[in-house]
Design a protein around this nucleic acid. Structure first.
Lengths: 138, 138
DNA sequence: CCTAAAAAGACATTATGTATCCTTTTAGGG
DNA sequence: CCCTAAAAGGATACATAATGTCTTTTTAGG
């Protein structure tokens, strides 16, 4: 359980690749996809999501492509993951206790809260800078 | 992401209910299902899985039913969750690095390892005793 | 205009989750 | 030795989500 989907995996690969490039280097989606071995059409959807929330910036037309929306040390892995996978929610009751008519007598709830906190803490503690370093083929 | 399935949720409800009963009290599946508001046929499948690994013991025929395989303070939430959801695997590469031809230059791998460890730690730290207490209608 | 490239939307396929039903096995009781 | 109770096991059905692909539209440069 708790498994990252392909989409999440691909998203990380793609944006980490970008983070390994100079901040002002505009990259073609097709190049990124080839470099990180992800279906280009799928990666396109992922980068559209990134673009909407500003994780990357996009330019259309000739000479267009993508670059990172912020410096890689300012983007956490949590942001990347949640951008495509949605929030970290070990159990429904964590985000919508009101929907769970059992929460009044449910001792499990606080456990899932703790799990959520731990996972978020780990992912918040990692930036794209760290992930790109030592991984940088330029 | 990382969401528990219904199956996992139902599994916890069911076995926590058992944990709230006297250790030698044989409970009918139909009673458990009704008490924790889970489809009986579905809960049956779940308890079959529990039974196979000894988390619960089952008795067939008249007077049959289920009881806990061990004292509730000796069963962790991790065991229960993994019994029905499989192992905690934030990413494939965590369990099968050899399958991931990227692991040689993948800095994300150790992060998922850390996530896995944190989640397992939290779930290992909770026993059915604690979950059943204050939850015990006898 | 013409071409390059991303954005947007529709669609297809497969896998997983969420069950239900039916038959078989096991056990107790008369 | 049946008869009934109850779990075990297997097959099936349905819904939802994951994993892509394809086509059209928008935007921008030359």
């Amino acid at each position: 359980m708790m498994e990252l989907t392909r989409k999440g995996e691909y998203a990380i690969r793609g944006i980490v690749y970008l983070a390994g490039k100079p901040l002002d280097k505009v990259c073609l989606l097709s190049d990124i996809a080839a470099a990180v071995d992800v279906p280009p059409t799928f990666l396109a959807k992922i980068f559209q999501q990134f673009s909407k929330i500003g994780l990357v910036r996009s330019f259309r037309g000739t000479g267009g492509g993508f670059l990172l929306g912020r410096a890689p040390e300012l983007i956490t892995l949590l942001e990347v993951v949640e951008a495509v996978e949605g929030p970290i929610i070990p159990n429904r009751c964590v985000c919508a206790p009101q929907d769970c008519d059992r929460s009044a007598f449910c001792n499990v709830h606080p456990v899932w809260k703790r799990v959520q906190g731990q996972v978020r803490d780990v992912l918040t503690g990692v930036t794209l800078r760290e992930l790109a370093d030592g991984n940088n083929q330029q």
